[in-house]
């Protein structure tokens, strides 16, 4: 990490004003994440990990502090600029998959490319390739309700990958899955990491976090611990 890190958070603060009260979700986060790291963010509920996830995912902006992503300061960007950054740099994987129910797996994976302005032919090609990467080449034309939970999450991962993002951002990716399927999904993340993908994952389950190479624990809106370990 001698060069510029992929993600750099400096004194990141996020506060919410509720009537007269001010609630601090994040109170000065200092964090740097390099390319090809596999990081798990942990912490009890209310520790600010969801807010941190939203800020890193460019869905939310900090009240104070700086957020540098890939050499650009994104903390002061407008809504539409943030949308463009999300489209190019971030791949989201949600706990509840968040697939469009009436669209096929292929079309779900094509969605980010639609907003990137990619041509239909190129979209189809990239989406098929992403689905192959997660082992769903034979399920492309199925709708979400024809897929198992694990398959749905794979579609979501394919959708997150299709734009070739700088970071894969997973929010409790196994929260709605049984333990066997969870292991399968974690294997997919592990594989992607091996291929060079930077992965950032929020979880409250220690055994899931154990797959990551670095675990950052939040408590009351600050980094409580940050430990790197070798091998998983």
């Amino acid at each position: 990490m001698a060069e510029q890190p992929l993600i750099s958070l400096r004194g990141l603060t996020r506060e919410y004003r509720m009537d007269a009260e001010t609630v601090y979700a994040l109170r000065g986060i200092e964090l740097a994440i390099g390319t090809n790291e596999y990081v798990a963010i942990m912490g009890p509920s209310g520790s600010g990990k969801s807010t941190l996830m939203n800020v890193i995912g460019c869905l939310d902006t900090p009240t104070r502090g700086e957020y540098w992503l890939n050499g650009t300061e994104v903390s002061r960007m407008s809504d539409d600029e943030l949308a463009r950054v999300r489209n190019r740099e971030i791949g989201f994987v949600f706990q509840t998959f968040n697939l469009l129910p009436r669209a096929t797996a292929l079309h779900n994976v094509e969605l980010p490319l639609i907003y990137a302005g990619t041509s239909a032919r190129e979209r189809r090609r990239a989406a098929s390739r992403a689905l192959e990467r997660v082992g769903l080449a034979d399920r492309m034309h199925h709708r979400p309700n024809e897929l198992s939970g694990g398959q749905r999450q794979r579609v979501a991962i394919a959708r997150a990958l299709v734009n070739d993002p700088s970071i894969l951002l997973a929010d409790e990716p196994t929260g709605n899955l049984d333990s066997v399927t969870s292991q399968e999904i974690m294997a997919v993340f592990g594989e992607l990491h091996t291929q060079g993908q930077t992965v950032l994952m929020v979880t409250h389950e220690a055994d899931i976090a154990a797959h990551a190479h670095r675990v950052v624990t939040l408590l009351d809106g600050v980094v409580h611990s940050d430990s790197v370990r070798e091998a998983a």
Binding site: N87, P112, R159
Partner: peptide
Amino acid sequence: GVRKALGATRRE
């Protein structure tokens, strides 16, 4: 929400 997260702007 999903579409916005995936990069749709307000205008889109």
